[in-house]
Design a protein around this nucleic acid. Structure first.
Length: 498
RNA sequence: GGGGCGCUAGCUCAACUGGUAGAGCAGCGGACUCUUAAUCCGCGGGUUGGGGGUUCGAGUCCUCCGCGCCUCACCA
């Protein structure tokens, strides 16, 4: 539990460190030799390119050992994988074998070996060690070679140990990188420009969330860590770029859960001269492309559910989705929050007494509908009052042209026909400002410069935001967002109690 | 923030209604030239998350605190 404690095992390793230095061996040499990775050496041998006279130089961490009197086996592991080494006394000499290899080296040490590659009687490709060099002495013992490290708290707090001994964890972040790469490939090939916008913002916006606050000393100014990129990316559309995107970190000062981390990775793209229908088509194309690139197939298993990403995905009006799950027709209570609250209580719900119609509708969605949306599904047409940056439906001014994409029972993305009417946008900001003043801490503050940008004219635009972490959860079949974030947020352990 | 569960050796886990804290791996010493969870013999290793309490006696019961997990609330 306490990895900082000096145990008897570490004390022994520190003694070895001193003994190595006494004998003139640098336990942390500056240079090393390598001709092949473990994987390359095995592949070259398989192809017949390495004969008994070809010497390879390998490096890696000692992961297992089977020590015997005059010849031993071990596995070393580098970034490409493991390879077995065979260490013989008659090839290395008495001192190197008995003292250096058997006494001074430990599991976890990083070494270099040189020698030819051969195949053992049991068929394993193995390096016959002629030279062995210490590259890094390890002082802390590794976790159990068989059970590995399973304690989630230790795995997250000391992720390097988790990665070291759990190759399947390393694989998660390889997949994550492939996913992000595929998203970039798609957007780049469609003519989107990747941009970077401020993380430190004087006014936060683009989402309903409480921000982290910080302070610039020289400017004597309070700043916020962004909760979304939206208002900056739309300024770029005003400026004349037709297709822009950003992949980066958002910060939201809210609770943590299996699908919430205080900082998380978001993709947002904005595309001029399209609407939310166009964005829906692009969203299913983008996501299915990225999933197929990572997964090799449009079908995968997430938490026991077979999920099929093949487009097109169903478009279900929010009104219908809620009606199907609850029997409540939200449009029947339009503008009648109290009536809707009563209907919610009638089906056993516990509606927020402060919430307006839109927020109640949203809570119906998250309480009754969201977890049932396993297959990729677009829920479309949301209440305007919880969509302050989305364009109104021409057919119904209470409804915004907005959709959210759900996969595996989680909201994955959120998009709309962007509101480009500056006066309507100002009115919605003011509405939000009143909510903020009334105590809704997640409402939008007014961004006057953004209104000015809209007054210069933003073309009809579709915008899209997606949680990369959640999509990674789906693709790697992980039940918690912490499994797909290398260093998830945990409370800091304090030294000394009370 | 509320509720529930958990925290024992470096790692993975035991320890019945309170009665001497154990095992496997890892480590240390020894044997062993095709092993791969190597095997065999022997040995050491603990402030049972922390403080306080009840008791002849606490890993176990009570209490406060810390951290984690689940859940509810919250959450575009």
């Amino acid at each position: 539990m306490d990895l900082n404690a000096i145990t008897d095992q570490e004390r022994i390793r520190r003694q070895k460190l001193a003994e190595l230095r006494e004998r003139g061996i640098d336990p942390y040499p500056a240079r090393c030799e390598r001709t092949h990775t473990a994987k390359q050496a095995k592949a070259a041998f398989e192809r017949g390119e390495l004969g008994p006279d070809d010497i390879v130089a390998l490096v890696g961490r000692i992961m297992t050992r089977r020590i015997m009197g005059k010849a031993s086996f071990a596995h070393i592991e580098d970034g490409s994988g493991r390879i077995q080494i065979h260490v013989r006394r008659d090839l290395l000499g008495e001192e190197t074998y008995n003292w250096f290899f058997k006494k001074m080296l430990d599991i976890g040490d990083i070494i270099g070996v040189k020698g030819p590659i051969f195949r053992t009687r049991t068929g394993e490709i193995t390096c016959e060690v002629r030279e062995i060099t210490l590259l890094t002495k390890t002082l802390h013992p590794l976790p159990d070679k068989w059970h590995g490290l399973t304690d989630v708290e230790t795995r997250y707090r000391h992720r390097y140990v988790d990665l070291m001994v759990n190759p399947e964890v390393r694989e998660i972040f390889v997949k994550r990188a492939k996913l992000v790469r595929a998203i970039r490939d798609y957007l780049d090939s469609e003519g989107f420009l990747e941009v970077e916008t401020p993380i430190l913002q004087p006014i936060y916006g683009g989402a309903a969330a409480r921000p982290f606050t910080t302070y610039h000393n020289e400017l004597e100014q309070e700043l916020y860590l962004r909760i979304s990129f939206e208002l900056y990316l739309k300024r770029l559309i005003v400026g004349g770029y037709e297709r822009v995107y950003e992949i980066g970190r958002d910060f939201r000062n809210e609770g943590v859960s299996f699908k919430h981390n205080p900082e998380f990775t978001q993709l947002e793209f904005y595309e001029a001269y399209t609407d939310y229908h166009g964005v829906m088509r692009r969203a299913e194309e983008l996501i299915s492309y990225a999933v197929e690139q990572v997964n090799g197939s449009l079908k995968l298993t997430f938490q026991g559910h077979e999920i099929d990403f093949t487009p097109p995905w169903p478009r279900v009006p929010l009104r219908d989705a809620i009606h199907e799950k609850t029997g409540i027709d939200i449009m029947q209570y339009r503008g009648d929050a109290d009536g809707l609250r009563k209907a919610m209580r009638d089906i056993g719900g516990n509606p927020n007494p402060e919430a307006g119609w839109g927020k109640l509708v949203d809570s119906l969605l998250s309480s009754y509908v969201e977890e049932t949306l396993i297959q990729p599904t677009f829920i479309v047409d949301y209440p305007v009052d919880i969509s302050p940056l989305a364009k109104r439906s021409p057919e119904n001014p209470d409804i915004a042209e907005r959709f959210e994409g759900f996969i595996g029972g989680m909201e994955i993305c959120n998009a709309f026909s962007e509101l480009n009417d500056p006066l309507d946008q100002l009115e919605r900001f003011l509405e939000q400002g009143r909510a903020l003043a009334a105590g809704d801490e997640e409402a939008h503050p007014v961004d006057e410069d953004f209104i000015l940008a809209l007054r210069f004219g933003m073309p009809p635009t579709g915008g899209f935001g997606m949680g990369i972490d959640r999509l990674t959860m789906i693709v790697t079949d992980k039940p918690s967002i912490r499994e797909v974030i290398l260093f998830p947020h945990l409370r800091t352990k304090l030294q000394g109690v009370t």
